[in-house]
């Protein structure tokens, strides 16, 4: 536990020292500014629902940038050799790395909470829907991060890591578009695999076990695969 904590601390320290943290923060906030006020303008009844869907789209682009260096950089700079020869288990390493990125992402989410407070001043939003929406976007971010950490463990090249993440995220996100005309089983499966299906539920204030299971199992799978991947050094 101590070691996971040490890794988390170091990851956060490095995040907040790198320009990417601030770039991501600025992008998130400015995109929010724009969309938030357009949305409030258009449908007078203030709701964060659409903002969550925008967030989802935005995080799909941003999260690979946050996670691309998690393992790639260590592999590239040779610090992986240090990390892997300390008496730290692979599980501790993967969890420490994952939780570090997750906490950084969480801090961005917390930032956006200010918007919620503004909305509360302007009208009376569906408080429950906002809460579930936040839970949904957080779970989805957590899933995207798990994917990003996994692809980062596959390569020593950060760009390759980011591109691989994009491919996977786009497939998950846009899969519904391609299967609109499919029917039966394959439709159901892809419908379930698509991330946007689940987030819509959360944004509307309805949380089902199946949505939560979707994200949690996705996260666990990625973490396990990452563990296997770093074990496979030559």
């Amino acid at each position: 536990m101590d070691k996971i904590f040490a890794i988390v601390k170091k990851e956060l320290l490095v995040y907040f020292k790198s320009p990417i943290a601030y770039i991501v923060l600025i992008i998130t906030i400015s995109v929010f500014n724009t969309f938030f006020f357009t949305i409030i303008d258009q449908n007078k009844e203030a709701t964060l629902r659409d903002v969550f869907l925008v967030m989802e789209f935005l995080f799909m682009f941003i999260i690979p940038l946050l996670t691309m260096k998690v393992f790639s950089e260590e592999k590239f700079s040779g610090t992986m050799e240090f990390l892997m020869t300390t008496p730290t288990s692979n599980t501790q390493i993967v969890l420490g790395k994952y939780i570090g990125s997750l906490l950084f992402f969480t801090s961005i989410i917390v930032f956006t909470f200010i918007y919620y407070l503004i909305i509360e001043m302007f009208g009376s939003p569906d408080k429950l829907a906002v809460l579930t929406g936040y839970l949904g976007i957080w779970l989805e971010g957590a899933f995207f991060i798990a994917i990003g950490v996994l692809t980062s463990s596959w390569t020593r090249n950060q760009i390759v890591s980011a591109i691989t993440s994009y491919v996977i995220l786009f497939l998950l996100y846009f899969s519904m578009i391609y299967v609109k005309y499919l029917g039966g089983m394959s439709y159901d499966i892809i419908h379930y695999l698509s991330t946007s299906t689940h987030l819509k539920n959360f944004a509307q204030g309805s949380v089902s076990v199946s949505d939560v299971v979707y994200y949690l199992s996705g996260i666990m799978l990625c973490i396990l695969l990452t563990r296997v991947s770093i074990e496979n050094r030559i």
């Binding site: 040490a6 320290l13 700079s77 040779g78 610090t79 050799e81 020869t85 300390t86 730290t88």
Partner: peptide
């Protein structure tokens, strides 16, 4: 691994940590 101290061929350094932070990190790992 607990019994071994290892300096790899390319010293494994986290460039954007301070010397002290890096050593503290090593100590806890």
């Amino acid at each position: 691994r607990k019994k071994i101290g290892y300096l790899p061929e390319n010293p494994p350094l986290y460039m954007n940590l301070t010397v002290r932070d890096y050593l503290k990190y090593s100590a806890s790992l």
